[in-house]
């Protein structure tokens, strides 16, 4: 082909025409091999559970026992309430962290450090046994009473789990606040907004798009974290299950019952969390 023809844009005819050939698919040996191995392992595990020392009739019997049902209800209630406290605290502390006031900033940093640094079970026990340090609770003019009457298992669990969650949420919210374009702060200030108003009207709503999906994940974690509240005598599902097996010695059966319920709750929540993520990702997706 002449160079003149090439310059005109004509295609070279030196290459073979393969447009009529058929693609042959290779048999995916590796895929079948790994799948077989995994299926075999799973079969072994299932068989072990099926033929092992678990009395499945006991599992079935207690699966919908009243204490178990009220236990899982208490689990969900505690998870929801503690998460709500955690989110409120997290937002407040994240805002404190960005304050020009150094005392507020340091307090925020200190809060996150303390409550992320102590194990949750320790926090729960400290709240429950707070009366050893503060025997009475006094709100001047409103209430005065014994700490042990105020710090019930429910309140100990709520404070322990909620305040702990707040420390983690504050970091998520802080990342969300930082993720909002600086221009948004500037535009808000330019129309005369102070920092707090700008946060409330402009920044936080945009930050929430980035903050809420990971919080969905944290909520699922909180469902399971509530099991720690059993050590302060809060009757969530693990407490209820263990109370039963303390009486009838069916330890593995009742643990299976509790495990099944946790899986049920998390299985229901997971697609909901994905829906939540997708809903918030809508606004973030680039349109232009």
């Amino acid at each position: 082909m002449s160079s003149a023809a090439a310059r005109d844009g004509e295609l070279s005819d030196a290459l073979p025409d393969i447009s009529g050939l058929r693609v042959v698919r290779r048999f995916p040996w590796e895929r079948w091999l790994t799948a077989s191995v995994i299926v075999a392992l799973l079969a072994l595990i299932v068989r072990a559970f099926a033929t092992g020392q678990i009395a499945w009739s006991v599992v079935g019997r207690f699966l919908v026992a009243p204490q178990i049902l009220s236990g899982i209800l208490n689990t969900i209630v505690m998870a929801v309430l503690a998460m709500a406290i955690g989110i409120v605290l997290g937002v407040i502390v994240a805002i404190m962290r960005m304050s020009p006031n150094p005392v507020l900033r340091t307090t925020a940093v200190g809060y996150a450090w303390l409550f992320r640094g102590l194990p949750v079970i320790l926090q729960l026990l400290l709240w429950f046994n707070l009366a050893l340090i503060f025997p009475t609770v006094t709100i001047p003019g409103i209430y005065s009473g014994r700490m042990v009457d105020v710090m019930t298992p429910f309140l100990s669990a709520l404070l322990g789990l909620g305040i702990n969650q707040g420390a983690y949420t504050s970091e998520v919210v802080r990342a969300g606040l930082i993720s909002v374009d600086a221009g948004q702060y500037e535009a808000a200030k330019s129309i005369g907004m102070t920092g707090l108003v700008a946060l409330k009207r402009i920044i936080l709503p945009q930050a929430m798009k980035v903050v809420i999906p990971p919080l969905g994940n944290e909520f699922i974690g909180m469902i399971k974290l509530t099991s720690l509240a059993s050590v302060v005598q809060y009757s969530e599902v693990l407490y209820s299950a263990s109370s039963i097996y303390y009486a009838n010695n069916r330890v593995i059966e009742l643990l299976t019952v509790a495990g099944i319920w946790y899986l049920v709750v998390v299985t229901v929540l997971t697609p909901l969390q994905m829906l939540l993520e997708r809903y918030f990702a809508r606004g973030v997706a680039v349109h232009r």
Binding site: Q184, A187, K189, S190, M193
Partner: peptide, 18 residues
């Protein structure tokens, strides 16, 4: 913030509230 009410600003990257 009150003083800023006298001067409005139009930015290079618009900065509309999305």
């Amino acid at each position: 913030a009150r003083q800023r009410l006298k001067t409005a600003m139009v930015f290079q990257r618009f900065n509309l509230f999305p």
